[in-house]
Design a protein around this nucleic acid. Structure first.
Lengths: 247, 247
DNA sequence: TACGCTCGTTTTGTCGACAATATATATATT
DNA sequence: AATATATATATTGTCGACAAAACGAGCGTA
């Protein structure tokens, strides 16, 4: 059984103004991909939203086939799920999937930290990290929660890119996209001050070449983010359902 | 400039007999995917082979669009590369990419080992691992090099699946596919006895619940496989090219 | 009034056709 | 004879149209 809120969400109606820009003449697959995934990462397309092929095609001024390709790619990255004969929906990771993401990220991030420290002699490395941290602080100052969460994820992608391991960077991109979804699904709004200047501290440890400290900070950072989530109970919907049935 | 050998390889002609089965009436995407990736993992489709859409469509008795989808998926997994307007080719990982694969696998495999040890109370876990190791030994007894390499990869995928972390299992699938390609590209034929009973030893350590030993064995196993490769010099082709130019 | 069923509409899945690009062949030129 | 150019062929990229399935509305019945 579906809830009312579910059906409400299954529409692009409200999100249209945010996503629509113009029906450009020629738009590449990558642009469509980027626009959709950024919208998802910034929660303008909340989990569960139906991504109708025709609607997206009209919004982007592209053919349905092209949109379809992009949706297939997003599905492989688990950011959207495809229900056969029913269409594409923004993914709603389960608690179990959320735990798995953090479990995989921990050792991967540690690897990235080690490699970045090895390469820190190049001053551009630390410079770019500091630059990004500043952008994060700006978003935080502006109280732009969407940008904060997206930029938080992108910090880790940037770190992976700077590590020189392109494979790790690609995986980190996938994992941070999923992490954004997870945060929006499970983050307890009561703890907004979560993960504040931790990126800054990690950057400093990297600059100092203090590997043990950097890994410790990174691990605690991930622990912290995960601890902020309400992974004890099920998804919000299931919770609502339970509450409704109890009442 | 291309070499003669290159052009020779860019054809499915020789591999056809191995791959072709019949023009089945209905064949699912997953079947097409599996057939292609197993062929790649077993080196029946060597790196650099051109995967023409029409040819594959006829071979599988499917439409070109379907083949195209599968090729796109394989490209996202980096097992094939798509040259715009030129088509799909079995990937030829560079030395750098090979190193990255091992670098990412090391911490990921360690994670998997830890989780499997936690779950080893379920007797089916160790049983399935032993079963797989036996299959490997059978292939080794039969001197079936292709099956040996494929099964070696699948051992790690099985391990990841048994760890209970579906995300890790998916990543391991990708990484082992790439590892198969890498082994076929760079393995020094002079050292055929590489990685022999190591999977058996790892399984035993897991059964004993000896975490430190299992992780040590797994790490050394990966070190061993990587050390067997000729990653010092470039790809075989480049080597040939250099030699040809010198002569 | 509430439930179940049928029909119409919308959306997805699949395919074949056309256009654009790259490759290979043949011809002409230096 | 070798290179460059033009033509022909083959392969990929893109799109719109058709078929199938799911969804929603409306009707009928208990």
């Amino acid at each position: 059984m579906r809830k009312k809120a579910d059906k409400q969400r299954e529409s692009l109606a409200q999100a249209d103004e945010d996503v629509v820009q113009a029906a450009e003449s020629t738009v590449t697959d990558q642009e469509i991909y980027d626009r959709i995934i950024v919208s998802i990462m910034e929660h303008r397309l909340p989990p569960g939203t139906k991504l109708g092929e025709d609607k997206l095609a009209k919004i982007f001024g592209a053919s349905r086939a092209r949109v379809r390709q992009v949706l297939a790619r997003l599905a492989l990255e688990r950011v959207v799920v495809l229900h056969p004969n029913r269409g594409a929906f923004v993914a709603e990771p389960t608690v179990e999937e959320a735990r798995e993401v953090f479990e995989v990220r921990r050792p991967l991030e540690a690897l990235v930290v080690r490699r970045v420290i090895e390469k820190r002699t190049d001053p551009r490395i630390i410079a770019r990290l500091r630059e990004h941290v500043q952008a994060e602080e700006a978003a935080r100052a502006a109280r732009d929660r969407r940008a904060i969460i997206r930029l938080s994820g992108e910090y880790h992608v940037l770190l992976a890119e700077l590590s020189g391991n392109a494979l790790a960077a690609r995986l980190m991109h996938e994992l941070t996209s999923l992490t954004c979804l997870i945060i929006f699904l499970y983050d307890a709004p009561s703890v907004p001050a979560c993960r504040d200047q931790e990126h800054s501290e990690i950057t400093q440890a990297l600059a100092d070449g203090n590997e043990a400290e950097a890994i410790r900070l990174m691990t605690e950072h991930l622990d912290h983010v995960e601890a902020c989530l309400d992974l004890s109970r099920g998804r919000p919907e299931e919770l609502d359902l339970e509450a409704a049935l109890a009442g």
